[in-house]
Amino acid sequence: MKNFVINPVLNKEFKLRFRSFKSYLGILFYLLALGIIIIGFVFIQSLSNSFGLFKPEESKMMFMLLSMLQLALILFITPGLTAGVISSERERQTLNMMLTTTQSSTSIILSKLVSAISYLLLLIVASLPLYSFVFLYGGISPAQMLTTIAFYVFTIIAFGSLGVLFSTLIRKTIVSMVTAYGLTMFLAGGTAFLTLLLMQLGYNYSGNPSNVQHVPFAYFAAMLNPAIALFGTFEPEIIDEITNVTGIEFPLWAAYLISYTVITAGAIFFSIKKLRPNMKKG
């Protein structure tokens, strides 16, 4: 355990990351993007109100907007931070030297993943003061806030593991990045589109929204979609609707957790397996 906490790769990654000016610029632009949208939202809401006020019931909407926006930013940044962790070492010609040390493949892969995740967590922590806008107007419980943060951490680990896997399997960082972004787009956008499409099919079959034809496949598309899973924690009605159309009553958030836990475990396992050549097979 001690070896992992003060792991050499992790130690080096932290040093390199925080000596780079780019990391600080990244935090700056991240907060600027979130901040501008929040302030813009409050501004537009108060304009549309005849008294120039921001109503507390609109606070929940702002929380949802902020959370979905943060999820989009996380999904946008995670592949970029993780899909080059191994391939960039390979391109920089430092990987072979690392692989001839006695460090285990598990330690190298986990350290790389933890290092990338840590930076993303820092972004989330840095954005917390923006949430104080929401608490200023009320309408959101701290439990809801904590659930959202836990959801982010889980999602970062899952998508980060996929990035690390592509970085290990694909030699070129650019190809690895494109693949990781492609998959993330499919999981974030493609599955949402599939869910909507399949649910529409369910309605069309029956012709009556109250008496739908069950389309279970829509559930499998929805359970892979982080945006639907997160939105479901804010607005349970949407989950009820999915349950109604698919006929599957198993909680969607649990299906999301299970499916991404399996994906994460598989991605980490294969990354560890494929980092070094299998010496027993020529």
Binding site: K12, K15, L16, R19, S20, R92, Q93, T94, N96, M97, T100
Partner: peptide, 12 residues
């Protein structure tokens, strides 16, 4: 082991 081509980490 010293490879024929190797890189170093900048910022280290």
């Amino acid at each position: 082991y010293m490879p024929d081509f190797f890189g170093v980490y900048d910022q280290l």
